[in-house]
Nucleic acid binder design. Structure first.
Length: 568
DNA sequence: GCCGTTTTCGGCCCGACTGTTTTCAGTCG
């Protein structure tokens, strides 16, 4: 089992124990263990073999034994036992916003074991007859079940992509495979996908497909044919592997990357060609070895997969109007980072070293501010202490600049968490909404207005507050927000966490059109998450953003000027 | 279950908002 799978298993154990009324601190220990395992970069197997697992803070004897069992057996007996006691959909009830552990226990204790039953109970006003459940909870159940249904069968890019990459490596290591790539929605970096689609080329498709079917992760065969196999992973995600002849690879790759609209637009363009080989253009280009040649034969520049969506991009490309979208190598620093000064896992030193190792020129440490006490937010005194600690560390490397910043809370009553004097002396101020997410629109607007109009607020963090598939955005009129950001010269964040991707690509595109600068940040709470920047970059590419639109694609001196300059 | 320690068991981030309530507990972040 891999680190992520172990982390999922530990989380599931925690959820099930909680439903069964286990000691809350034991539950918390499992959750914490999951978070730690998720953040470890080396495979847990390696640490276990070296006997270093129990030395990690937060992993004691019990969790160590639990993890060792998973590594050896590929499963946890405790988890199996717990699953026998709690039907799977009772776990989903925990995901309903506004429904907590006590309500789930009440539902389960009164015989509700599926979401369908629960929804019916809510619609027929039966839930309110249960102790401690009222009409509002019924509304929350109905809304929440609808949200879960919309999400069902969909998997976040943060789950799908690492798994897809692992299968690609597996395929590439087979001697019979010439080339293997991710294709489909995932290659276009959609936020959520319904399956992983992989394309491989080989002269011996039967042999490849046979091997794939026997892969230990393929728990259930869904479908197979002459040149493909489709199977399901343990947690339900379908994977399709298609094997084609080398000569067909590029054409099939372009076609399967999609979207349908893009492919249709390409075909139309091919059919219209009038310079000699219009009749068999497709046969000609199937023998290409690179996508760039495929597009060149249609007299087009190569179109990045993230832009192959509407179909209209083909015409834009033909007119030379495609944006030069940002690449991951354009990113010069990460400007939203947490450390264990607040709720991060890694130390200040570890985060700074990790940024330097990524080849960044700069980074901003932005821990939470005092009001977010659950995250051990920094008081003014602590922030000043941290600034001094950062200055002390900065002397170690003159080629790497660390800004001392803050992720300051925008309070529910529309005040900011720090006075202006404090903000003035802080290198970079991100203002974010963390509490009071269900307020009415006029209150949310009043809060955002205070933040955007404050001359010291540089960036609005995760501007809509959504968690993909888990929490709706707070109630904000996006056109109003973009207009205000443009007027005040406030930068908006593209939060790279695959759970957030906030701003979403369509809003980021609108922001660019309004002349708003964006900042692609990871919001990392541990050093392993710095790599999430790739999700943010993919999201920005879908929005057609170019390096000039992005704060952290600018050289250090320019970033300093932008942060020092009064807004507006 | 983890940690730290007065080495054997007690304490484990917390405050605001909201409604299950009519005075406190559940939920959220």
């Amino acid at each position: 089992m891999h680190n992520q799978e172990i982390a999922w298993a530990l989380t599931e154990i925690a959820d099930l124990m909680e439903i069964l009324g286990e000691n809350p601190f034991k539950v918390r220990a499992y959750r914490k263990g999951a978070r730690i395992v998720e953040g470890i970069e080396t495979p847990v197997k390696t640490l276990s073999d070296r006997g270093q697992l129990a030395k990690i803070d937060g992993i004691g004897k019990g969790l160590c034994a639990e993890i060792d069992e998973m590594l050896e057996e590929g499963a946890s007996r405790q988890l199996q036992n717990l699953r026998e006691k709690v039907p799977p959909e009772v776990l989903d009830m925990l995901r309903l916003p506004g429904v907590g552990i006590r309500a789930v226990r009440t539902f389960f204790g009164n015989g509700y074991t599926t979401l369908d039953e629960l929804e019916e109970g809510a619609r027929k006003h039966k839930l309110r007859l249960l102790p401690g459940i009222a009409a509002k909870t019924e509304v929350a159940v109905i809304r929440g079940v609808e949200m879960l249904r919309r999400r069902s069968g969909k998997f976040g890019i943060g789950v799908a992509r690492p798994i897809a990459e692992e299968f690609v490596r597996f395929l590439q290591n087979l001697p019979e495979v010439h080339r293997a790539e991710i294709t489909g929605d995932l290659r276009r970096s959609q936020e959520v996908v319904e399956e992983i689609h992989l394309l491989a080329s080989s002269q011996e498709p039967d042999k490849i497909l046979d091997l794939i079917e026997k892969h230990p992760a393929a728990v259930k065969l869904l479908d197979d044919g002459a040149n493909f196999v489709r199977f399901q992973l343990s947690f339900g995600l379908p994977v399709q592997v298609e094997v084609v002849d080398e000569a067909e690879f590029i054409a099939r790759w372009v076609e399967s990357t999609g979207s349908q609209a893009h492919w249709a637009a390409l075909q139309e363009r091919g059919a219209k060609r009038s310079d000699g080989y219009s009749g068999d253009w497709q046969r000609f280009i199937t023998t290409q070895e690179a996508e760039i040649n495929y597009y060149r034969d249609l007299v087009l520049p190569w179109i990045p997969p993230e832009l192959r969506e509407e179909g209209s991009e083909v015409a834009f490309a033909a007119e030379g109007k495609l944006p030069e979208v940002v690449k991951i190598t354009d990113i010069r620093g990460d400007l939203h980072i947490h450390t264990h000064w607040s709720d991060g896992v890694s130390s200040l030193e570890e985060m700074i070293d990790a940024g330097r190792e990524r080849g960044y020129e700069y980074m901003a440490i932005t821990d939470h501010s005092q009001s977010l006490s659950v995250a051990r937010g920094l008081s003014e005194t602590r922030l000043r202490e941290q600034r001094q600690a950062i200055r002390n560390l900065s002397h170690r490397d003159k080629n790497f600049t660390v800004f001392s910043g803050i992720e300051m809370d925008i309070l529910p009553d529309a005040r900011l968490d720090f006075p202006d004097e404090m903000l003035r002396e802080t290198d970079l101020v991100i203002a974010s909404v963390h509490i009071g997410l269900r307020q009415e629109r006029h209150k949310v607007h009043a809060r955002l207005e205070t933040a955007l109009k404050n001359p010291h607020v540089d960036i609005i963090g995760h501007p809509t507050g959504r968690l993909i598939g888990a929490r709706e955005p707070y109630d904000v009129d996006m056109e109003w927000l973009l207009d205000l950001a443009a007027k005040t010269g406030t930068i908006l964040e593209i939060n790279s966490s695959p759970d957030r991707l906030d701003l979403a690509a369509p809003y980021a595109k609108m922001a660019k059109e309004c002349g708003i600068m964006l900042s692609i940040n990871t919001d990392s709470h541990d050093r392993a998450k710095l790599g999430d920047i790739s999700y943010g970059v993919n999201n920005a590419r879908r929005a057609g953003l170019e390096p000039k639109d992005i704060l952290n694609c600018q050289p250090l001196e320019d970033v300093k000027k932008i942060l020092a300059k009064p807004k507006g």
